[in-house]
Computed example of a mutant assay.
Amino acid sequence: MKSKKTKQINQIKKSTDVCFNIIFLLLSLICILPVVFVFSISISSENSIQKYGYQIIPTEMSSAAYQFLWNEKGTILHALFISVLVTALGIVISVLLTTTMGYVLSRPNYALKEVYTWLVFIPMIFNGGMLAGYVVNANILHLRDTIWALILPLAVSSFNVVICKTFFKTTIPDSIVESAKMDGASQLRIFFQIILPISKPILATIGLFAAFGYWNDWFQASLYISDKNLQSLQSLLNNIQSNIEYLANNPYGGLSMQQYKASMPTESVRMAIAIVIIVPIACVYPFFQKYFISGLTIGSVKG
């Protein structure tokens, strides 16, 4: 009788279910339509953009923007390799550092837990600023013009450490750790052979956060990288866009520059650059969606 009553209370009305579906459909369209709109502009001709403005259905289609990027394929492919390398190494380092810190802070018997919790929490509210970070990374650690300048400054996030701490504290039973200790296992063995194999949701969540951060970052390259061979894809495409804006806003350039500007798409190239950046990371997300959703519900109340 009680279970039947509870089932009736928890049951969702059909009208409510329909409303939820409509709301989620609208939210999905809000997320998808901007990408479709950007792609439509990227395949629009420059003349139609100047004449009719941005349109979700192009009046005149053109592949000039992608042909322009294709002409730079050698440089773009090398920059893509740098971005993939930085993202792959960054994910491994970020997940390793973040999960180990979160696990240590989640242990109730750790003597310095309160001190390190504050050391992790304070940078979430305050930071040393860009100048202090630059001095440390460039002058003290000598990371300038090295691939580590694109990886190490973004390796650890206080927010991610707190997520890991909450996950390990609420999900991993203390009895598992204590049983392993009684069997003579060291802390490293417990962490790598027992804790990590049952922590796939948090690994996927932190890995996806790190992937987004590394893949979309161009600012670190603008600060620390002057070697063209170490430019990431985002940094390279940002430089291309900046050069396009320079040509578009410099009517007093030389004749050859103006001829190059007249034959080069501007608005459509900007949108094509956005599509080139979005597509690779969008293709990765579905493979981690299951674990990502599980990781985001850490700490939620269970019924």
Rank of each mutant, 00 (worst) to 15 (best):
V162Q: 06
T166D: 04
F167M: 05
F168T: 06
F168V: 02
T170V: 04
T170N: 13
T171Q: 13
T171E: 14
T171K: 12
I172S: 09
I172L: 14
I172K: 08
D174R: 13
D174G: 14
S175I: 15
I176N: 05
V177H: 03
K181Y: 10
K181H: 04
K181R: 15
M182T: 09
M182P: 02
S186L: 11
S186D: 09
S186I: 10
Q187M: 03
Q187R: 12
Q187Y: 07
L188I: 15
I190D: 05
I190K: 09
F191S: 08
F192A: 05
Q193P: 03
I194L: 14
I194M: 13
I195V: 15
I198E: 06
S199I: 08
K200N: 07
K200E: 02
I202H: 05
I202Q: 07
I206R: 03
L208C: 06
L208G: 05
L208K: 01
F212I: 10
W215K: 07
N216R: 07
W218V: 07
Q220F: 04
A221L: 00
A221H: 07
L223N: 01
Y224T: 02
I225D: 02
I225S: 01
I225H: 02
D227L: 11
K228R: 01
L230T: 12
S232C: 09
L233W: 14
Q234H: 15
Q234A: 15
N238T: 15
N239P: 00
Q241I: 04
Q241Y: 10
S242K: 08
Y246A: 13
Y246H: 13
L247M: 13
A248L: 14
P251V: 01
P251T: 06
Y252I: 03
G253D: 11
G254W: 03
G254D: 11
G254E: 01
S256Q: 15
M257A: 07
Q258M: 13
Q259R: 15
Q259W: 11
A262E: 10
A262H: 02
S263M: 07
T266E: 02
E267D: 07
E267K: 05
E267C: 01
V269F: 03
V269N: 13
V269S: 04
R270P: 00
M271K: 01
M271A: 15
A272R: 14
A272T: 05
I273D: 11
I273H: 11
I273L: 07
A274W: 03
I275R: 04
I275A: 05
V276P: 11
V276G: 11
I277E: 11
V279D: 02
C283F: 13
C283G: 04
C283H: 04
